[in-house]
Design a protein around this nucleic acid. Sequence first.
DNA 1: TTAGGGTTAG
Length: 342
Amino acid sequence: MLVLSVLSHIATVDHLKQAGLSLSVLAQFFKLGHQPDITTFATVINAILLQTSSNPNVSNVEDVLKLFHEMLHSRPLPSVVPFNQILTQLVRLKHYSTVVYLNRQMVLTGIAPDVCTLNIIINCFCHLNLIGFSSSLLGQFFKRGLQPDVCTFNTLINGFVLENRVVEALLLFTKMVEAGHFKPIVVTFSTLIKGFCMMGNNTAAMQLLTKMEERGCQPEPNVVAYSTIIHSLLKDTLYVDAMKLFLEMISRGIVADVVTYNSLIHGVCNVGQWKEATMLLNEMLSKGIFPDVPTFNVLVDNLCKEGMVVEAKSVVEIMIQRGAEPNWITYMLTLVIRGISS
DNA sequence: TTAGGGTTAG
């Protein structure tokens, strides 16, 4: 009880440092062999969400649009770089159509897109499932005397993968590499690995991971490449294979991050290994890896499945109270909770 | 000096 009251205090006093402190106290909790209860988790969530809301990269669309229009009307006109930064921010907020519209306004005002701008627009079309538009945008490169780069091809390959057109993604990859138009990098391979995983072909994904090394891919396979396959294996409930790959990754000195742990925690919860999930959470905290909103969504979901409805509900309420932007999964979980409670 | 890849439900 003493630890709990300390946690409550430190989480409400300040944001960043205290959130970290709360987590280390939580890690101590695990080390001492105690299972933290929901109040403990709730206190830590409070601290984390306060930290998230103070993050300058988290911004709302209205502010970004206001800044865009101020820049568009200022004279002399700023260079294309700050405009690209604004578009990037909107892409992060998943406002793809808005980005396409704003780019049109930029062109009409006389701001010439560079390679980076065109890559951003291609990416938006890909996320809008309009890869046909993206391909035709390649003409813009030549019209403006620009050369598509490795990022352009990676984005297009990802576009095909997003539309489940993995064969076409592979064709584009092979054609462009053989023609010497680009040298694939770790992002290219990770994108193709994701494609194979989406097709349910984990074997091909693993083979590609090996092939990356044979080809002397620089940089070498990283946490994203490994996490993609780990996630896919867990999705197929191949828990042993996933853990084997996870250990291989660690032994190679590749550091797992919050996404890797979220996948692992989710995967082990799905096969009913709550104890294993707690251990992974413990491991994550002891390594100083910060849980994020998806981590808590997984926890809320599993609290529901365990019948701990009141606790799950309070986690969601705290998230909303703290100004975190619950995503549609959180909303869905809320509906589930309401359904169970009624 | 801006762009591209991995996680959360059912």
